[in-house]
Amino acid sequence: MQGVVKVNSALNMRSGPGSNYGVIGTLRNNDKVEIIKEVDGWYEIRFNGKVGYASKSYITIVN
């Protein structure tokens, strides 16, 4: 499943599904990501070869 990031500035990509996990990357508005699965309001995603987590509130699913 594919998604597009929708933010005003930047979205942190984290090592786990929560804001208490470390930041491993930064996503920008309109970045395209691969959604692997949903975990407690977060998406596990793949972006630029990295796998991490981002809040699903800021990612819109596209077909």
Rank of each mutant, 00 (worst) to 15 (best):
A54R: 00
G52E: 00
E38W: 05
E44V: 06
I24D: 02
I59L: 05
S55W: 10
N20Y: 12
G52M: 03
L27S: 01
E34A: 04
G41D: 12
D40R: 07
G3F: 03
V51H: 13
I45K: 00
E44C: 05
S57H: 11
N63M: 09
V4D: 03
N12F: 12
K37H: 12
W42H: 04
V39D: 06
N29A: 08
I59K: 00
E34H: 06
N63S: 13
G22L: 14
N29T: 09
I59F: 05
V62K: 08
N8G: 15
G49C: 07
K56T: 10
G49Y: 06
I35S: 01
T60N: 13
V51L: 11
S55E: 15
L27N: 00
K32N: 14
R28E: 14
K50T: 10
N30M: 11
M1W: 11
G22K: 11
D40M: 09
N48V: 09
F47Q: 05
S55F: 10
D40A: 08
N8S: 11
G25C: 05
I35C: 03
T60A: 13
N8W: 08
K37G: 09
A10I: 09
K6T: 14
K56W: 04
G52V: 03
Y21E: 04
A10K: 07
E44G: 06
I59H: 00
A10W: 10
S9V: 10
S9A: 14
A10R: 11
N48K: 13
R14N: 07
T60W: 12
L27C: 04
M13S: 02
D31L: 04
L27Y: 01
I24C: 04
S57M: 12
V62C: 05
G18N: 06
V4W: 04
G22P: 12
I36G: 04
N8R: 08
D40L: 08
G18Q: 02
I59G: 01
E38T: 06
G18T: 02
I35G: 01
N30Q: 12
I45P: 00
G52R: 01
G3A: 08
G41M: 10
N12Q: 10
I59N: 01
V51K: 11
S57R: 11
D31G: 03
G25V: 10
R46Y: 15
K32G: 08
G22C: 06
G22V: 13
V23R: 06
V7G: 13
N12I: 11
E44M: 06
S19V: 13
N12V: 12
E38M: 06
E44Y: 07
V62I: 10
R28F: 15
S19T: 10
D40V: 08
G52S: 03
Y58H: 15
K50W: 09
L27P: 01
E34M: 05
S15A: 12
K32T: 15
N8A: 14
G41I: 09
Y21K: 03
V39M: 10
G49H: 15
T26V: 13
V4M: 09
G25W: 07
N63T: 15
S55I: 12
I61T: 07
R28W: 15
V4A: 07
S9N: 12
I61F: 07
L11G: 05
V7H: 13
I59S: 01
M1D: 11
G18L: 01
L11H: 07
M1V: 13
G52N: 01
A10S: 13
K6M: 07
K50Y: 09
T26S: 10
M13N: 01
N20S: 12
V5D: 01
V51M: 11
I45G: 00
V33T: 03
G25I: 08
Y43W: 08
F47C: 04
S15D: 15
A54D: 00
R14F: 14
Y53Q: 00
W42L: 02
S55Q: 14
M13R: 00
S15V: 09
V7M: 05
S9W: 11
G22W: 07
K56F: 04
F47S: 08
I35P: 01
R46D: 15
G18D: 06
R14C: 04
N12E: 09
S15R: 07
Y58W: 10
G41E: 11
G25Q: 11
F47A: 09
G18R: 02
Y21W: 12
G41W: 06
S9Q: 14
I36Q: 09
M13G: 01
S9Y: 11
W42C: 02
W42T: 02
D40E: 11
E38N: 04
